[in-house]
Amino acid sequence: MEVNVENKFVVQNLNLFYKDVQALRSISMEIMKQQITALIGPSGCGKTTFLRVLNRMNDLIEGVRIDGTVLLDDQDIFGPDVDVVNLRKRVGMVFQRPNPFPMSVYDNVAYGPRIHGQKNKSQLDQIVEKSLRSAALWDEVSNRLFKSALGLSGGQQQRLCIARLLAVEPEVVLMDEPTSALDPLSTLKIEELLRDLKNHYTIVIVTHNMQQAARVSDSTAFFLNGDMVEFGPTETLFTRPKDQRTEDYITGRFG
C-alpha cells in the first residue's frame, strides 16, 4: 500500500479566547492524511477545544474568538468563502457521550445522506448497510434496524454514531474521547474499528487515556494549559519525549 504523507490540516499560530480567557496559545501543527493523530493532556488543557476548532463547532458557543489560520487541503477554514455546513460535512465529529437521535437505527444512519439530498430508497438502504458494516455494527443491529436507537447499549450507540458519520462520507473524523463513557470491551471494539477506518479517513482523536493513544495513534500531540508542549510520532513521544513536562505527564506525575 502506498504510504501517504500529505498534509490534511495545517494549523499556524492559532490562538483561541473564551471571553477574556485565552484557551489556546499559538498552536502550530500539521495533521497527516490517513493517519490517526491523538491529542492528549490533563483535563482543561485545551485538547477538546482544539479539536472543535477543526470543524468550527466552537462557532456554536457564544464568546469564542479565534485568530491564526487553519488550512484544510490548503484552504483556510475561516476564510470568507467557506461554508461552515459544507466544512462539517467534510470534517465530521464523534462526541464523548454517544448521542444517537431519538429515532430508529436506520433513520439515524440515513439522517446525513437525507439532509444532503439523498432520497432514493435503495441507495439509502445501501449506504445504511455499508456504513453499519464499516462501523462493525451491522451484525448486531441488522435485525432491529427499524427499532429505536435508544434501545442499544452504550458501546453500540457509539458505533452507531460512527456509522452515522461515515454515511456522510467525510474526509476527516474528529473524535472527542469516544470511549470514555464505555466499558472495556466496547472500547476495544472501537479501537479495532479505528485501525480499519484509518485506511480511508484522516482521524483526530482526543483521549485522556495514554495507553489508548499509544495503541492506536501514529502521531501524538501533548497539550498543557492551552499550549501544545510537544508533537511528534507516537512512539518517539512516549519513549523519548523531548520536553520535561511531557515526560512528567506520561510517567504519571500529574494529570
Binding site: 455546513v85 464523534v94 462526541f95 448521542n99 454514531c161
Partner: peptide, 13 residues
C-alpha cells in the same frame, strides 16, 4: 445539546 451538536457535525443546517 448533544443531539444538536451531533446533527451539526454531520453538516446539517
Amino acid at each position: 445539546k448533544s443531539l444538536e451538536a451531533g446533527s451539526y457535525a454531520l453538516g446539517a443546517t
